[in-house]
């Protein structure tokens, strides 16, 4: 099963829609509640990151019997120092975004915590690719 969603940078009204639709799909597939909760949290944060930081992005979700793979590819400023960005509390979000309660610097660490495997690659000035992988069986990690 595969899905592809386009995300527009700055469109906060729709932030979370992809995560919300995946949540429904995972529920229909009867995927373990704890497992699906983690996937949905990780995807939500990835989605918000594209909206808050990038110009546009694409989210691809691939589900098979054993895993859920999510690729989030954006065109945007990229991440200059990934290690620093991973640190809880570090954020480059604008003050406007922060006032809404985003930009707490917890997005990437929430994604890491809630995925079984996470890979980030980024070219500053071009964009970022985040790959998330979660195993469907809770004991498969």
């Amino acid at each position: 099963m595969q899905f592809r969603h386009k995300i527009a940078g700055g469109d906060f009204a729709k932030a979370g829609n992809v995560a919300s639709s995946l949540k429904k799909v995972l529920r229909q597939l009867n995927i373990d509640h704890t497992v699906s909760k983690r996937i949905v949290i990780a995807l939500y944060e990835g989605e918000v990151n594209v909206v808050a930081h990038a110009y546009s992005g694409v989210i691809e979700v691939e589900i098979d019997e054993e895993k859920v793979k999510i690729n989030i590819t954006d065109k945007g400023p990229g991440i200059i120092d990934i290690e620093k960005a991973m640190k809880e509390g570090y954020s480059t979000a604008t003050s406007q975004v922060r006032e809404m309660g985003f930009g707490a610097g917890m997005g990437l660490s929430n994604m890491k915590k809630n995925s079984d495997l996470m890979k980030i690659s980024s070219v500053p000035g071009e964009g970022t690719i985040v790959e998330l992988l979660n195993y469907i069986r809770p004991d498969a990690r």
Binding site: A19, K23, V40, Y44, G101, F102, A104, M106, S109
Partner: peptide, 29 residues
């Protein structure tokens, strides 16, 4: 919002001063 995403648990009441629509997305997820 990310704090709630990361740490709130199912069934809890969320107390906040935020009023914009993204709180519903977070609450629902």
């Amino acid at each position: 919002l990310s704090d709630v995403m990361g740490y709130a648990k199912e069934g809890e009441i969320w107390i906040t001063l935020q009023t914009h629509q993204n709180i519903i997305a977070v609450a629902s997820l």
